[in-house]
C-alpha cells in the first residue's frame, strides 16, 4: 500500500496546544458512543427493559451493561481489557497479553524481513538501470493486488510444505510492509544531489563507498518515515494472517472467535489491544528515529 506517500506529505502538526482540542474531540466521541449505544442496543435490551418496568434509569443501566450488546459501552470494553490483561496470568489462552504477544512476534519478524527486503530491493533498483525500469512498475502493480486476500492461500500452501505458526504470518507481514520501505528508500538513496555525487567522484570513491558514505546516510530520514508506515502495515498483515486459517492464538484469532460466538465485548477488547500494539510500535520507531537523527547531527 502506498500509504508511505501519505505520511511523507503529512504536515508536522505541531500547532500550539492541540491537547485541548484532542481532549474535546475524544469527549464528544465518548458522549456520542454512550448515547448511540441506547438505540443500537435496543433490539437486545428492549424486552429486559420492558420487563423491568421501563423508566430512564432502567434504559440506561440495561443499554450500558448488556452482556452481548450490539455495541458495548466504552467502560465495558475497558473492564474486559483490564480483566483479560491483568486479571489472568499472561501465558493463559484467556489472556490478551498472550494473544498480543503471538501477534507481536510474527509482526516483528515480518517487519524485520520486510524492511531488509525493502532496503535490498531499493539498493538494487538504484544501482541497476534495467531493474529500475523493469521492477518498479511491477512492485507498484503488486500492491494493487489485495495481498490480504491471498493470505489464506499462502498459509495453507506453506502449511502443507511444513511451515506452520510464525513463519507464514510473518511472510504476509513481510510482503505487505516491504513496499513502503522500497519506495521510501529509493527516494532516499537518490536524494543526494549531483554536486555531492560529483564530489565523491573527485575523491575516487567506489560505488560501495558512495553507497555507505553518502547515499545511505542521506536516506536515513526517508527510511524512518517508511518504517513507521511499514510497522503499522506489518501488524495489520499479521492480524489478517491469523483470521482465515482458524488460528487458535493471536489478535486475529481472538476477533474470529469473538465473531463466531457473538462475544462483542471480546472483539472490541481485542481490537483495542491491537490498536495499542500498533500505536506502541509506531511510537517506538519514532523514538529510535529521533535518537538516530540526533546522533547523526540533524536538528529537530
Amino acid at each position: 500500500m502506498s500509504a508511505s506517500t501519505a505520511s511523507a506529505t503529512r504536515p508536522r502538526a505541531k500547532e500550539e496546544g492541540s491537547a485541548l482540542p484532542v481532549a474535546v474531540v475524544c469527549l464528544v466521541i465518548l458522549l456520542v458512543w454512550y448515547i448511540a449505544a441506547i438505540p443500537m442496543n435496543w433490539v437486545v435490551t428492549e424486552p429486559k427493559i420492558a420487563a423491568a418496568g421501563g423508566g430512564l434509569s432502567n434504559i440506561l443501566s440495561f443499554s450500558w451493561s448488556e452482556a452481548r450488546p450490539v455495541i458495548p459501552a466504552p467502560h465495558q470494553i475497558a473492564l474486559e481489557l483490564w480483566n483479560s490483561v491483568f486479571g489472568v496470568k499472561p501465558w493463559m489462552p484467556k489472556s490478551l497479553v498472550y494473544h498480543g504477544w503471538v501477534t507481536l512476534s510474527s509482526t516483528l519478524l515480518g517487519f524485520f524481513l520486510g524492511a531488509l527486503l525493502g532496503i535490498a530491493l531499493a539498493i538494487a533498483i538504484v544501482h541497476v538501470t534495467f531493474l529500475a525500469k523493469s521492477l518498479m512498475p511491477w512492485i507498484i502493480a503488486s500492491q494493487t493486488i489485495p495481498i490480504l486476500a491471498i493470505a489464506p492461500m499462502v498459509i495453507v500452501v506453506l502449511g502443507s510444505l511444513g511451515f506452520t505458526g510464525l513463519v507464514p504470518k510473518s511472510l504476509i507481514s513481510m510482503y505487505l510492509c516491504f513496499f513502503p520501505v522500497t519506495i521510501g528508500m529509493v527516494k532516499g538513496l537518490t536524494s543526494p544531489e549531483t554536486m555531492q555525487l560529483d564530489l565523491m567522484r573527485t575523491y575516487n570513491a567506489s560505488t560501495s563507498e558512495v553507497l555507505w558514505k553518502l547515499r545511505f546516510p542521506a536516506s536515513v530520514p526517508f527510511l524512518f518515515t517508511s518504517l513507521k508506515v511499514a510497522v503499522a502495515i506489518a501488524l495489520t498483515g499479521a492480524i489478517v494472517g491469523e483470521m482465515p486459517t482458524g488460528a487458535v492464538a493471536g489478535i486475529g484469532a481472538r476477533l474470529l472467535q469473538g465473531s463466531y460466538f457473538g462475544q462483542t465485548v471480546q472483539i472490541w477488547a481485542a481490537l483495542f489491544m491491537g490498536s495499542f500494539i500498533a500505536a506502541g510500535l509506531v511510537w517506538l520507531v519514532g523514538v529510535v528515529e529521533r535518537f538516530t537523527l540526533r546522533r547523526m547531527g540533524a536538528r529537530p
Partner: peptide, 10 residues
C-alpha cells in the same frame, strides 16, 4: 496507523 480491518467482524 491502526489495524482497522479488525472492525470487519463488528
Amino acid at each position: 496507523a491502526l489495524p482497522i480491518v479488525g472492525m470487519a467482524p463488528i
